[in-house]
Design a protein around this nucleic acid. Sequence first.
RNA 1: GCCGCUAUAGCUCAGCGGUAGAGCGCACCCUUGGUAAGGGUGAGGUCAAGGGUUCAAAUCCCUUUAGCGGCUCCA
Length: 746
Amino acid sequence: MPTITLPDGSKKSFDQPVTARQVAESIGPRLAQAALGCKINGELRDLSTLIAGDCSLSIVTEKTGRGGDKQPDPDALFLIRHSAAHVMAEAIQRVVPGVKLAYGPPLATGFYYDMQAPADRPISSGDFEKIEQEIAAIIKEDRPFTRYEVLADEGLAKLRAEGNKFKIDNAEIALAKDAQDAAPDADPLKSHKSLVTPGVSINYRPGCRLSFYATGAPGKNWEDLCRGPHVPSTGRIGAVKVLSLASSYWHGDENSDRLTRVYGTAFASQADMDAHLNQLEEAKKRDHRVIGRQLRLFHIDEDVGQGLILWTPAGSVLRLELMKFISQELEKQGYHQVFTPNIGKLELYKTSGHFPYYKDAQYPAITEPESLSKALAEGCSCAELTNRLEGVSARLAENINKRTGKETIESSRIMADEKLLNGYLLRPMNCPHHIKIFASAPHSYRDMPVRLAEFGTVYRWEQSGELNGMTRVRGFTQDDAHLFCTEDQVPGELLGCLSLVKVVLTTLNMKDYRVRVGLRDPDGKKYTGDPKNWDRAEDACRAAAKSLGVPFTEEPGEAAFYGPKIDFVIKDVIGREWQLGTVQVDYNLPIRFDLSYVGPDNQPHRPVMIHRAPFGSFERFCGVLIEHFAGSFPTWLSPEQVRILPISEKTDGYAQKVLAALKAVGCRATADFSGDRIQAKIKNATDWRIPYLLIVGPKDEEAGKVSIRARGIQKDLGAMGLDEFVAGIKAEIESRGASSVAARFV
RNA sequence: GCCGCUAUAGCUCAGCGGUAGAGCGCACCCUUGGUAAGGGUGAGGUCAAGGGUUCAAAUCCCUUUAGCGGCUCCA
């Protein structure tokens, strides 16, 4: 008979099997009333789950935590949203008859349901109001979520009779997964011919069951194949909102059925819902595309091209300040800055392996005019031109294969020199150029490491549907560097790189990030290089991440094709994650380019390369930065740092004097000489999110002072001597925010 | 790339078969005003581009381009 351990450690024993609800009732009626579900041995379950054996149990209610700061419980939200997905599906089937349901899981901020609408009656956002009305009606009916289980055979027969192939597929996958989990014991397995995929058999355990949830009484009310769990009844769902429509594919496979995905969200209360919707509104206002236009930070022009950023004067200030900042750090860390062109010969990228391996993600090659005319004169077809562009000379293939010790370049790609079509590639990465700088002079172990840095612009053909403002673009500038070092120097150099990223993030007050060590996927085939080198590189990354002293996760499959990496993934205000800074170890390119340095033994040795970019790219970084600060940049980054607002034309002269004093110390200051009244001048300046406003009138002029208004503080802070303010703002800018002029007023 | 939605003045948007509208911004004028919008006048649009239907198209249809929301992808 069950003995149940509660979260506080106390135990309760029962004479016979009990449901979780009964346990809750035995603890207290209020708890039972608030209960939405339970966790049995850490697993989220229905409140109606019958408990027969000993276990630990906690009751899930909508609120957790103690004291005044009550946050919605994530488990409660899971139950509510999973249940809301069912209710929304039922509502949609009422509004749009003939809809076939596919799959409807809860998400971190809501839920969705994938479904197939009849060809002649698509679901549209115009249906939302009616759907929400139906949802409200179902919630009001307060029908219980009733779970029932049937044997696999019976369940499959039932689904077959209903004729929804998505649900049959779901059931078959669930059965197959169950069999796989049970496989080690080699239970006798029963075979079932897939009803969805012809010619496929699915093995499952004979005793295996499928679960269904009826919203009400089985056989009478709406029901759905579902693993559960759910809240006790529809009345417990609280607030539901249908948010948006999107399209998706069955199993995410673009060759499979196209489905309509209906997004919604649900909360325990309308107040929580309102808070969430409000937060979405706020997030929209922070969107870098919106603020970027308001503050004229960047522009994307249809006539220039998708995903190509035009940095306007204000945005360029941001970028230049970041470049200045990183340059100073590079200096401290012993880097050499270099400049290299944005294109290079095709053969260079055949040597590095970028072409044609990643040709789908690159702008097409630029063909050499003479080479092209010659091929055209020969009457080459398009396919043949491509072939000749992608071919390699016997010499190159031999070199690469010899260096890598295997057939890295297949013999089928080898082509006679006179047939090869010469061309150039808009560079997808900066490394080959830096490698050539390293290789242009002999290196002794005494010179190592060689650290070459460049604000290098690269071009990649991102899929058009992926482009997004500044955060996903086709041309971007990395704060890139390549470190050539000895094997022994790898750990130290990795650490140096990581500390650089940390300095950047700390200075910009970006604290919400995680570190990800990207390792190769054991089954992956995309990786190049010797497995032994991979092991060494992965160990070095792991060790470096460890010594950094911040929590990190190891993620197989996240490595670059040429080596493992350490990424800094920043979380923005809306909760999205962005990969910004990255550090990657590379044993592969030094081999392909046959790099060497002379060791103490007077013999050539192979260097190891480290790729790193603390910002990632200026485009993405600035996009995230705009949202991080909501356009209110710290003074050192602000395009306009101070605006002087003369009360009237009478003090225009003094305003000019103040302006000159600020400009003399390199402060980006302007003055508003418009005919507006002071109230309007303040309003306009506020809209531009300028850190400091200096109001100057006759009183200030007489006293040689300026009246200060700081961004975010909606009042006059009082007056300060002009010289004192100039010195203060200079210190604030030069220290990158370590000191503040406004601080002495607040 | 795929699916859906969208495209009207510099910006935000209304108009949705009968010869283009508002607010903000911009220019000029009046106002000389002490802390989040003083008043007036005016300029500015071949309604994304191209094609079609119609007596008539910003409005309906098709194609293209671009944006948005997803899916897939991201060396």
